[in-house]
Amino acid sequence: MAIEVRIPTILRNLTGGAKAVDGEGATLSELITNLDKNYPGIGERLVENGQLRRFINVYLNDEDVRFLGGLDTPVSDGDTVTVLPAVAGGMR
């Protein structure tokens, strides 16, 4: 068993086109480090200065990890992590 990570279109150039990849770790932070080993470059697209990037949404199963523990959120085998670019903007 592993953790399934669903990859958005904009990051699939880093996963060889795969929509979903498997990773391992006890926390979201460890999972991202593990992903970055197999798919170099993906880490910096998700994390900046030790925090999740503002314009990236990461979900553990059905919940936005910002409402859980952010990068410290515990994850376990069988979980699904979904990455989506935030859709936002404004007149300024």
Binding site: D64, L84, V87, A88, G89, R92
Partner: peptide, 23 residues
Amino acid sequence: EMINAERSPTFYRFDSREQLKVW
């Protein structure tokens, strides 16, 4: 139609839970 989580005249952001559901 999506909810503007910011409910603002100068900014919009999709509500993150609704976005996950729609995606």
